[in-house]
Design a protein around this nucleic acid. Structure first.
Lengths: 133, 133
DNA sequence: CCGTATCCCAGTGGATACTG
DNA sequence: CAGTATCCACTGGGATACGG
């Protein structure tokens, strides 16, 4: 299987020669978890209840079938959502956030709040930096 | 200059054909900002006051000179830290978090809290998923 | 409908060597 | 000391085609 680019092979290894700050290493872990291109978008799409594969695909413009599958598999593996297959034809598969998944969504909101509050500051800082050659 | 891999060229473009949720797009922006390999580690290293280049390098095991420079430049561009050059020999350059940078550090802590609370859940979920062939 | 298998490319980041 | 310049390996992720 050459799919599945979303599964980190090294599980929580915060062990370094002289690890100065384990806490920051945890932040890095979760950033690796939700920092990829589609994870938070998928989680957000599941915020208000279960969705099936094709609904997610339609609800997230721009995502490829491959990446949707890979992202869902990664989230399932980490226990952030559940995958339910209904043995009917045509096949139907439902994805739904676990309680753990919901807590992650809440955390993402604190990120969003920071972004909303400071996005203008950052934009002006960038323009200033870029325009002084 | 073939350095500077940290500068995103496209500024805040949350405009999509039918953008369903602008808020999530903001989360993606900030994740692109702090989701790279070294940014939060560097910010954390600056938590308790200004540091010079070589201090940062020593304080962050594993970071290359190139990536330290690139990360610092990106953070400076976004107004998250300031760079102060002292015209002495040998040269001395101090980096120091701006107030904006400190608020980002605070936000990173909420991420850390989530990670600390749920890292065990995720680990067990992974093992269960992986071991059922 | 719900995926997998391949191919392929741009971007990230490490190693190393060189400068003011 | 504080960077730049170059080269290069690896990975994330898009496009496409096929399969149960």
């Amino acid at each position: 299987m050459s799919l599945a680019p979303g599964q980190p092979t090294r599980d929580s290894s915060c062990a370094e020669p002289g690890v100065s700050d384990e806490a920051i290493c945890r932040v890095r872990e979760i950033l690796d978890r939700i920092g990829d291109k589609w994870t938070v978008t998928v989680i957000n799409e599941l915020a208000h209840g279960p969705r099936r594969f094709s609904e997610l695909k339609r609800g997230i413009p721009g995502i490829s079938q491959r990446m949707l599958t890979a992202t869902l598999r990664g989230l399932e593996r980490d226990g952030l959502l559940t995958r339910t297959v209904y043995p009917v034809v045509p096949p139907r598969v439902d994805y739904q956030l676990t309680p753990l998944g919901h807590t992650l969504l809440d955390t993402a909101w604190t990120l969003m709040n920071w972004a909303l509050q400071h996005v203008n500051d950052i934009d002006t800082a960038r323009h200033e930096y870029d325009t002084r050659e």
